[in-house]
Write a protein that binds this DNA or RNA. Sequence first.
DNA 1: CTAGGTTTCTTTATCGATTCAGAACCACTT
DNA 2: AAGTGGTTCTGAATCGATAAAGAAACCTAG
Lengths: 362, 362
Amino acid sequence: MERVTLQTIADRVGVSRTTVSNAFSRPDQLKEELRQRIMEVAEELDYPGPNPAARTLRRGRAGVIGVVFTEALSYAFADSYAVGFLRGLARVAEQSGTGLHLIGWPSPGVAEEVIGDAVVDGFCLFSPEGHPLVETVLRRRLPVVTVDHPYVPGVPFVGIEDRIAAREVAAYLLGLGHRRIAIVAAQPLAAQARTEARTRPVTEEWLDVDLAGEHRFGAGRARLAGYHDACLKAGLAWEDVPIHRTTNDREIARRAAQHLLDLRPRPTAVIAATDEIAFGVMDVAAQRGIDIPGELSVVGFDDVPAAEPAGLTTVRQPITAKGTTAGRLLLEPSRHDPAPCVLMEHRLVIRRTTAPPGDTSH
Amino acid sequence: MERVTLQTIADRVGVSRTTVSNAFSRPDQLKEELRQRIMEVAEELDYPGPNPAARTLRRGRAGVIGVVFTEALSYAFADSYAVGFLRGLARVAEQSGTGLHLIGWPSPGVAEEVIGDAVVDGFCLFSPEGHPLVETVLRRRLPVVTVDHPYVPGVPFVGIEDRIAAREVAAYLLGLGHRRIAIVAAQPLAAQARTEARTRPVTEEWLDVDLAGEHRFGAGRARLAGYHDACLKAGLAWEDVPIHRTTNDREIARRAAQHLLDLRPRPTAVIAATDEIAFGVMDVAAQRGIDIPGELSVVGFDDVPAAEPAGLTTVRQPITAKGTTAGRLLLEPSRHDPAPCVLMEHRLVIRRTTAPPGDTSH
DNA sequence: CTAGGTTTCTTTATCGATTCAGAACCACTT
DNA sequence: AAGTGGTTCTGAATCGATAAAGAAACCTAG
């Protein structure tokens, strides 16, 4: 049996293809009676409706936006920060009848092809710090918005002032009196691939935080720069601050935490570059019977939903609002001339995982 | 400036359009030297790569599957059960280079159009209990897999034995000695729309649980039927069991919980049809200073990630595995003849929110 | 030196719709 | 009778690529 198309129906009813097309897409363009007849025949022939690919090709509009993650999607769905962002993005997309096409980066090469083949009207790049996919996406010459670094000239941007926020949270710990502070940085997979294995001390290259315009680098790096600023100001030698890096994943972060809590003397505080990582640190502390905040203070970053019940001191940023803003930037028809660069608010939220350094006799 | 297509490049280089196409899609079909030259010209003309819509039209394959939710996406992303499912689905999709097109149902009418226009090779219907979108999706005549009810004849299905599992969890509570049990059922929005406002006693119609083949109805209904079975067996009059229904949303569930905890005598146990709802009940209990499990036992269903830290007694079902299974069913090339109906394992997980009825003097 | 096989590129025929300009018809006015 | 304006429908052109088959050039071996 041949495939049923508009033409099949047109022939059967005895009208032109155009008229059948109108019956589906512009019912007001033809007599109700004829439309009825066409619909009946369509039903009879089991016509599945106008082919979306053909329609998209002709119209030049897909009604879908692509959301590109730089890690595997299965990771992204485990990360409440990413999910919160999607929530916001979905809200505005749905309202305008726009679909969401999610693209992850499970392994090098796969996503490149998917991006090239994605039938979309624009892309949202989620936290693509230094990732090769950025290039792939830009080559499509479609509207793009970047979320959370890097700032690409000419491309709309949504983020927060990571460096400043990081400075605040580190300053808060220092203000409590902590001096033996350890850092768990979130280094994106892409950067990691370029250097060595995980959970090893951060390389100088990646750690060269003394740079202007950190927006051109990742959020991870910007936060690190902020921690650095605060330490410097408090008179702490940056060389004395142990730093480990890890992916933004609770389980993987645990490994880094093991190393840091093995240090002697043990740090009295750990700064985690994300909440997810902070949870990993707390897991290990709990497992070893280290009291938080009595023996160890922990701070995170992001204020994901689970942070509140966990009592985690962290930096709140408007996760969902980032999504809605990014969505609006992408869907707005107006051509912004200087690409907008939206910097959202953040706030230090003090909960129960931080206290002045206490019992540290180890 | 005119748009750049394969033809533009072909003309400029002086070869046929097909050759340029091959340069992009089948590099082995032409001399490396020529390919280089074509790529150079493409670069020069700022060609964004072969148009995906045109490509899809010609190839007849999109490399994308649609995932249809029956609520707004912004809700779905707040529901860890849905997110867990997506995680599993994403895993298998990514491995085969398949994209994910998410479609929600923010308000009647919008999704229908999006579904009709979705450039996909198949659909995964997520828990579409009695939802009108099922029809819309089926009309596309593409491969479909249904997750969690209803069972549509001829359509592959993935789920668990909701009724049996629900029976178990209710029987457990009854076994502990509870007699004043209240139920918070999860009624899908679609069914709700057909009846009245939320948080009112379930209508007889929806509640007519005494039916064979509950697979044809929703998971919500199947679970209710299971609770019913257990009560009946324990000699509890079904009429005496207060039931409220609500959406699967923590916040909305709180309202239902308010009503139930206002009852005098107050129930000693609450059966929630999902964990998310159970959390809502626990929120209200905490807010009113009702001790769990001392004064009130609570059980959920699903065992979402947050259930463990919360100590919630619940029914575990393989959330992520459901996603991978659904994905495989959809991506597998083989035509299953009798549509497969995969029933996965479940298990009652007893934690800290349940105990024999204790202090109930109110 | 030629039959047969490769490699490399071209030609022709779609994929399935939408757009846009215009034809045919109708009812009314002047 | 001719002009005006609307509705309803048609035909041709187009969206941007890929598939399949064929032609030309180039090897290779007998």
